[in-house]
Design a protein around this nucleic acid. Structure first.
Lengths: 258, 258
DNA sequence: CCAAAAGTGTTTAATCTACACCCATGA
DNA sequence: TCATGGGTGTAGATTAAACACTTTTGG
């Protein structure tokens, strides 16, 4: 959606194509190089940082919409993406004054009751991706992005600070009874790698040895007979997720600590 | 909403008062006499059992809407009510043919593109109530209700079997890291009472002694110096939830098993 | 005194935790 | 051969699980 015609069409006819009152705003967690970050976009009209987002097509299944929006923004497909909450306690997300600001910014005259400015509930998802593989696409409404460390989130638009906080809390709680990491690590990885991932997500130290023992004893990962050469040190063994056990744990949930 | 005028107004003007495309459908778990049941309503027009439901007013905060709907249906206020998922993968919940059925049943002529028959995403909540305290209110669309044992759920309207299953799964998973029961038990309760509640929800046996030890050692409940007289047997001690620890655990989550 | 229900203790096994120690590698 | 990072073992503490035993109560 980058040409003027596309935008024009979106503004005028979007309400025919999309479900009103609803948006999908994924919190995209990116992990790379032992850092956990989230993707923020700079919104032109609103002059601030916010989450990427999109709308649901009238006949599009919800989960498909979420995946499409993620794909449009990051180019990634087939990643861990989970709905976690609908935010709708602030009666309006966009106030009336935004219509004027919007008009000034984009050069569009729109009514204050235009569909874009109606009350919008945000169906929030969180995704886990390797951010080195992401190519971010901005559109007409956004003019920049950043991968922001989770410990340094700035003040965001609307109620999105709450959304991000809740996403992080959900992720950290969930990691205790669902295996997480399939999409963040290469197919074959070493114990130190997955160990560091979990430490980063949880924001605390975990005993490396005990951590590995646990994952193996739960059957979630399997030790391979290969090693990775990592320079001037002992070569660590490679591990792989046990696809079956992993899927099973995702749907059933596991109860344990790390 | 029981008079003809109310209904008339609802059909004709509901789209002005409520957000379109959205409904709130709480799965209401009722516990009483060591049984776990859910509240089902018989829908007149659709000729089947389904969950109670309602719509969100245009300027009403989401959580307030959920509480209002629960209150309207059960008369209860201030109960455990938690959002758990939006269901929106079936592109339509009400098919076109329902418009005709609807007209036949209620004697209303409505267009197939009437707001009531548009695609609706269901924001699902689950509630925990003591069903002996509930007085169910039916409305024009429903002509009966039942408290149905969770192990005997019949085939429900739309995708609601999936909703109920997911609610139950969420409840059972959640009970492992959030205390549940504040609203299901009297203010002061005995260990056997709360023990039986947890056994019923989880659908499995728990060692009574170890269970009590755990709850006390977590600080969630406190032993009182009173006992309850229960006839020809030893009088059990009364316990009380530790309000502070309980609230804390609700927001923070606990990691443990039973 | 008995049956039924509640409360308590203790043993055993499992698991967690925290280290200490050994191994492999390339500089 | 040394520094560094990776892998392994184990003792001690903690927690879970199972079950037997004691207490209370009204009949």
């Amino acid at each position: 959606m980058n040409s003027r015609e596309d935008l024009d069409d979106f503004i005028k006819n979007g309400h025919k194509q999309y479900l009103s009152h609803l948006s999908i705003d994924p919190v995209i967690f990116g992990y790379h190089d032992q850092q956990l970050k989230i993707l923020l976009l700079r919104w032109r009209g609103l002059n601030g940082w916010g989450l990427p987002g999109g709308f649901i097509r009238k006949r599009e299944p919800l989960s498909q919409a979420a995946n499409r929006i993620l794909q449009e923004r990051t180019g990634l497909d087939n990643v861990f993406l989970q709905q976690f909450q609908v935010f709708g306690d602030s009666p309006y997300r966009l106030q009336e004054r935004n219509a004027q600001e919007f008009a000034n910014t984009y050069g569009f005259e729109v009514d204050t009751d235009h569909w874009l400015f109606e009350r919008t509930l945000s169906i929030s998802y969180f995704a886990l991706v390797d951010y080195s593989r992401v190519s971010v696409t901005t559109d007409f409404f956004t003019d920049g992005y950043q991968w922001c460390d989770v410990s340094e989130i700035p003040s965001l638009l609307f109620d999105q600070n709450e959304v991000v906080e809740k996403a992080l809390a959900t992720l950290r709680l969930q990691i205790y009874h669902q295996p997480i990491g399939y999409n963040l690590l290469p197919d074959k990885f070493t114990l130190p790698e997955i160990h560091s991932l979990y430490e980063t997500i949880l924001g605390k130290k975990l005993d490396p040895w005990n951590f590995g023992k646990k994952l193996v004893s739960l059957g979630l990962i399997n030790k391979l007979d290969e090693r990775r050469s990592i320079g001037a040190h002992r070569s660590p063994y490679l591990y792989q997720f046990d696809k079956e056990a992993y899927e099973n744990a995702l749907t059933q949930g596991i109860v344990h600590t790390y």
